[in-house]
Design a protein around this nucleic acid. Structure first.
Length: 608
DNA sequence: CTAGGGTTAG
């Protein structure tokens, strides 16, 4: 049996010989048709697949292709550029000689058309070919792991990286950090990042984005500051990542600083940066600034429009969202499914039932956008809030797309508003079958029972949660004061000003009660963990944050707070009273939407 | 032939 490698080498030798022989026998002044450079420049001029195939045929016939690796690689590359990966692969198959460039073009080609299976298969062949791996192919295949969320493959390739001594290459490591982060292994990402001998701008950007992605926007912003301290100068892409972190964090002050920096650096407001900034301002509670950015942008695409429509939606401005949608259609930008989710959501949170129904029915007929489960979820929410629960239920029963936990969750939420216990039990059953590990679902059902005074059922749910080892998600509230973010949990005593905060809270509650505030103990009774204890109601994280905001900012300053869960009913009432008595406008971002409190009223109309 | 960027329900 002949060793394949020896065979391969013999073969190579033969072709080299032929090559020499040919150049010896050919005319000294070779005509353009035998000059590889001639074909390479021809290839770059190709504008369609047909032209590429023609050049391919010519070089195959005159024998140039098999003996000129540069030419073959270029041809391979041009095929991949035109997404003709099948043609590329058949050329790849007949290439007698391959170098790292050929392999990386082929591996990258499969990744480009999302054919990850062949991407990995080709990479494995590359490794087995004994050819040396380089820092071109590895980032490509690592990114394929990220895009398929295949962390096991990612770890495997990480080993390969070590084997080839490429664990210090900035391209390779940045790709690995990104892969770990997007696969949810933030600790592995951080560890790699910390060990990097030299962190360049891209690795910083990847790491900053990684933290924002995993929900730790705070750390993300801290990392950005550290990067600046190390004199790494951010570019526009880095700024988009930071803008994104500000949006997730809801950090208004930081947002302003970031905007100022972008302006100072003269970064042009392109469609991506602009869209990100709209999102940032809107999620920091400043709809006007978001709109200013929107109006300033010269190029707007579907994402820009959708971001602005969504912003109006979660600020409770349904009419504005609808108006913007018609302008969008007038301007010729086609809506996509996300545009419709944002639009229906806006209708639902503004109580625009008929408009929502009209849009829902027109999606496919007028705009060729298919309804998916999220659109149905918005409709369930829309009908449910309006008390039309039977219609919502019928919609769910008749729909032909697959139902998910979000859909049942919306139905359950609507049942809570309207105290529909039997429907709630039906929805909860379906919900828990799909997702039995989410404590939020149990809490919601328990709240429904509590509101109806069915304490035995409340106890049953609590028992079930204990049995399944589920704990209610901890609630956090953030408030930004003097460019610093302060975080509070329920009953928090860790803040430096804790004493003053509780004193303030005591005074506030006294004043509020005189003004007619009655604590809603319902919200104490159906909490499932420590919050159960009497008095805990007074120290909900949003109340602490507000008390702190009142003592740490000048009179009349608006307070902006962010909460990771939905604001509780008692806190909602409490904040309404505070806005009137302390004469402050208070802007609360909860897990779902914004509440603008002003003079004793909330923009959500107590309907959230 | 390489790495990093924006919108969506509950």
């Amino acid at each position: 049996m002949v060793d394949p490698i020896t065979q391969h080498q013999t073969h190579l030798q033969t072709t080299t010989n032929i090559n020499t022989l040919q150049s010896e026998t050919s005319i000294p002044q070779s005509p353009p048709s035998l000059d590889p450079k001639h074909y390479i420049s021809q290839l770059f001029k190709c504008r369609n697949l047909n032209q590429i195939t023609q050049v391919h045929a010519q070089v195959a016939v005159n024998g140039l292709l098999l003996h000129n690796l540069t030419l073959a690689n270029k041809l391979l590359y041009i095929y991949v550029q035109h997404k003709a990966v099948i043609d590329a692969h058949s050329l790849f198959g007949v290439m007698t000689e391959k170098d790292p460039v050929s392999w990386s073009v082929m591996v990258g080609g499969f990744a480009r058309v999302c054919d990850y299976l062949n991407c990995f298969v080709t990479f494995r062949e590359y490794v087995r070919s004994g050819e040396c791996l380089d820092n071109y192919t590895l980032p490509l295949v690592i990114r394929a792991c990220r895009d398929t969320m295949d962390i096991n493959m990612g770890r495997l390739i990480h080993h390969v990286v070590h084997k080839f001594g490429l664990h210090s290459d900035p391209f390779v490591v940045a790709a690995l950090v990104d892969m770990y982060a997007k696969c949810g292994a933030i600790d592995d990402a951080k560890q790699l990042f910390d060990k990097m001998p030299e962190r360049d701008l891209v690795s910083w950007t990847v790491m900053i984005g990684a933290y924002a992605e995993c929900g730790n926007a705070n750390e993300s912003l801290a990392l950005f500051d550290r990067m600046r301290e190390e004199d790494v100068i951010p570019d526009k892409v880095a700024m988009v990542t930071v803008v994104n972190a500000c949006a997730k964090m809801g950090a208004m002050h930081k947002a302003r600083l970031v905007n100022e920096y972008i302006w100072r650096r003269n970064f042009s407001l392109d469609v991506i940066l602009g869209s990100a900034m709209i999102d940032m301002y809107a999620k920091c509670g400043n709809l006007d600034s978001a709109r200013e950015i929107f109006d300033k942008m010269r190029e707007k695409n579907v994402i820009t429009w959708s971001a602005m429509i969504a912003a109006y939606g979660y600020h409770g401005k349904g009419r504005e969202a609808l108006e913007l949608f018609s302008s969008m259609l007038t301007s010729g930008v086609l809506p996509n499914r996300i545009t419709f989710v944002s639009l229906l959501y806006a209708c639902s949170h503004a109580g625009l039932v008929e408009e929502g129904l009209r849009i829902f029915n027109s999606m496919w007929e007028d705009h060729f956008v298919r309804r998916d489960v999220k659109h149905y979820t918005c409709m369930v929410d829309l009908l449910g809030r309006a008390g039309r629960l039977n219609e919502a239920f019928n919609l769910v029963e008749d729909m032909s797309v697959e139902k998910d936990e979000g859909l049942w969750g919306a139905l359950l939420g609507a049942c809570r508003i309207h105290n529909r216990i039997e429907l709630a039990e039906k929805a909860a059953k379906a919900l828990l079958e799909l997702q039995s590990q989410n404590p939020g679902h149990y809490v919601l059902l328990s709240n429904i029972y509590a509101k109806a005074g069915r304490w035995e059922d409340v106890a049953k749910i609590r028992e079930l949660m204990t049995h399944r080892r589920l704990k209610k998600n901890p609630g956090w509230t953030w408030i930004e004061v003097d460019n610093k973010i302060h975080r509070f949990s329920v009953g928090d005593h860790t803040h430096g000003w804790s004493k003053e905060i509780y004193k303030m809270l005591e005074m506030l509650i006294e004043k509020l009660e005189l003004a007619g505030y009655v604590p809603d103990t319902n919200f104490v009774l159906h909490d499932v963990d420590e919050e159960l204890k009497q008095g805990m109601l007074y120290s909900h994280s949003e109340k602490l944050a507000i008390a702190f905001g009142l003592i740490s900012t000048p009179e009349g300053t608006p307070l902006r707070i962010t909460k990771n869960l939905r604001v509780c009913g008692d806190c909602h009432t409490f904040i309404k009273f505070v806005s009137a008595i302390a004469k402050r406008s208070i802007i609360v971002r909860d897990a779902n939407r914004f509440h603008h409190f002003e003079e004793g009223a909330c923009s959500c109309g107590d309907y959230w």
